[in-house]
Design a protein around this nucleic acid. Structure first.
Length: 385
RNA sequence: GCUGGAAUCGUCUAGUGGCAAUGACAAGAGACUGUAAAUCUCUCGGCUUCGGCCUUCGUAGGUUCGAGUCCUACUUCCAGCA
């Protein structure tokens, strides 16, 4: 069903917003982190385990579900909620990012009509258009559909970006025209790289089309530096309507959530908590200064030998199922043995970590002390392990 | 006791005259931002002023410009025969 957004308040000193997503009789506060379940599952987690992390919206992916099992299977199953047994809100990405990531360094042909590219599974030639993407999302029956956009690489130059955002706006309009699911919200995507005028133009044109919410895209690509990301946000949010959700696509490093919220972003999604988990990494509170490039998220690799005899939780102050019940030594052991449960425990911790970070940010906004919160977060070098 | 066969980096393994020596696993570390990712990359005898140097393929000799590779003896293990 459609989601509604209400702004509760804005932080006194920053652009940080406290709001809520209304979903039937349920309400979820923002800022919010959305776990990613690309193939209609948050990798290594059951819906109950995801739910225990207290998320709001979760993500799934148009491209992947189009390829497997096919949108008709999902539709016949009764829609995505029924199919994957997730009864909270679901947002589907449009497949725009897959055109960028799957066809990286490979043949892809972006035309006005749509994008020709190759399936990574079968090698089959695929053709995805704005209409096709919306049509698939209509059938998947997610609660929020995303417009089909071009997600240009960080290396794209000004002239290319200019042509690209113009086309993305035309695609957004075409997608909106065929959008036919009355129970589904539809969001537009602002692009434009790190350029102020392009972001502004993209924002104004996209907003003129009147979507249910807006997102900032093209900021979490490889090679993107944080300064460019923050600029892209700053150049976009001032033009975005106050009464609609603002979604920063693909961003999920803790420090980036803080910086994004400060600049007026409401919701985030990222694969990193679950991917890092499968690779043995746990997010821990604090940041490490990476020099000129700025701050980097702090994390520990549980596969490291130093945790073999560490019988303390990953974070003593964390309320997640992993930290409440298991030690680093145990997770270390599981990861060494390639036991799936290790990835499950770390996924739970990492997702809960980001959701807790959002909870803390909401409290800070509520109390008008977001600047202080950010300050203490960026200065936090305390090692909790 | 006799006759064959075999001994290589923590483990298994490639190697039949130019070798610090193949691959896998194990081990040590790193990367990961709208998931082609439970993946990928690097290291993995010692020392190094990063040019190299030294010591290594059961042990001891030998042949050779050069031996993990060929020869002899020994040690240990495996198989068959007694």
């Amino acid at each position: 069903m459609k989601v509604k957004y209400e702004l509760i308040k804005t932080d006194k000193n920053t652009g940080a917003r406290l709001g809520k997503v209304i979903y039937g009789d349920k309400e979820y506060e923002t800022p919010m982190f959305m776990p990613v379940g690309t193939q209609a599952t948050v990798k290594t987690l059951s819906p109950e385990q995801v739910l225990a992390c207290h998320p709001g919206i979760i993500l799934s992916n148009t491209y992947h579900l189009w390829q497997r099992p096919g949108e008709d299977v999902v539709a016949e199953a009764g829609g995505l909620h029924q199919f994957m047994n997730w009864h909270g809100p679901i947002l589907t990405d449009s497949g725009g990012y897959q055109v960028f990531s799957l066809a990286r360094n490979k043949k892809k042909d972006i035309t006005e009509e749509g994008v020709h590219f190759k399936s990574e599974l079968s090698g089959a030639n695929l053709f995805l258009t704005p209409e096709k993407s919306i049509e698939i999302q209509n059938k998947l029956d997610s609660d929020i559909a995303m417009s089909f956009d071009e997600c240009p690489p960080a290396t794209a130059d000004y002239q290319y970006l200019k042509r690209s955002i113009e086309r993305t706006v035309r695609w957004a309009e075409r997608g909106k025209k065929v959008h036919a699911n009355p129970n589904q919200s539809l969001f537009g995507i602002i692009q434009g790289g790190p350029y102020e005028d392009l972001r502004r133009w993209s924002a104004e044109q996209t907003i003129a089309l009147d979507f249910d919410g807006y997102s900032i895209g093209g900021v979490a690509n490889d090679d993107e530096c944080k300064d460019d990301m923050y600029k892209a946000i700053e150049y976009s949010t001032p033009f975005m309507p106050k009464d609609k959700l603002r979604y920063l696509m693909g961003v999920g490093e803790p420090v980036d959530l803080v910086e994004g919220v400060m600049r007026g972003v409401d919701i985030f999604d990222c694969v990193s908590p679950t991917r890092l988990a499968r690779h043995g990494n746990a997010l821990i509170y604090g940041v490490k200064n990476a020099g000129i490039a700025g701050y980097k998220e702090k994390r520990i690799n549980l596969k490291n030998a130093r945790f073999k005899y560490d019988f303390t939780p990953i974070e003593g102050s964390c309320d997640c199922y992993c930290c409440q019940n298991y030690t680093k030594a145990y997770v270390h052991h599981l990861m060494r043995c390639d036991e799936t449960f290790g990835a499950t425990l770390l996924s739970i911790h990492n997702i809960r970590f980001l959701i807790r970070l959002c909870e803390k940010m909401r409290e800070a906004i509520r109390e008008d002390c977001f600047l202080e919160f950010r300050e203490s977060f960026l200065n936090c070098t305390k090692n909790t392990h």
